[in-house]
Nucleic acid binder design. Structure first.
Length: 105
DNA sequence: GTGATGACGTAGG
DNA sequence: ACCTACGCCATCA
């Protein structure tokens, strides 16, 4: 898979990220899979940084870890946004990962 | 053209 | 739990 033009792939990723329900989180790798592009987790991260209007804060690393270093501004912004939706974060980690993890409908 | 670099993931020691 | 090695792919020096 993972075929199609780069633009089509970006489109698919955009749609997947937009579909993540509030209060839930998803991993980069899962977003890639749900977008029919298994293995392209890095690509997902790049898109999140380029496109605006996406609920980028709902995407974390596999296992529930926040992708940014704790001392960065990005890290704090992501945490506050997740907390605002009721997602608990502790030591850079999403609590209750299994329940918070969204794997599509 | 080549090698390094990311908002990553999995496998193995 | 920690670390290394690869795989992935667009971008940039």
């Amino acid at each position: 898979m993972a075929s199609g033009s780069e633009d089509e792939r970006r489109q698919a990723i955009f749609a997947t990220v937009m579909a993540i329900p509030p209060g839930r989180v998803c991993s980069y790798g899962e977003v890639a899979r749900l977008s029919q592009q298994p293995g392209l987790a890095r690509f997902v991260g790049r898109i999140l940084g380029e496109v605006d209007g996406l609920p980028w804060f709902r995407v974390v690393r596999a296992g529930g870890q926040i992708a940014f270093a704790q001392e960065t501004q990005k890290y704090h912004e992501q945490v506050s946004r997740l907390v605002a939706e009721g997602v608990e974060i502790k030591n850079g980690r999403v609590q209750d990962w299994k329940q918070r993890y969204w794997q599509g409908y």
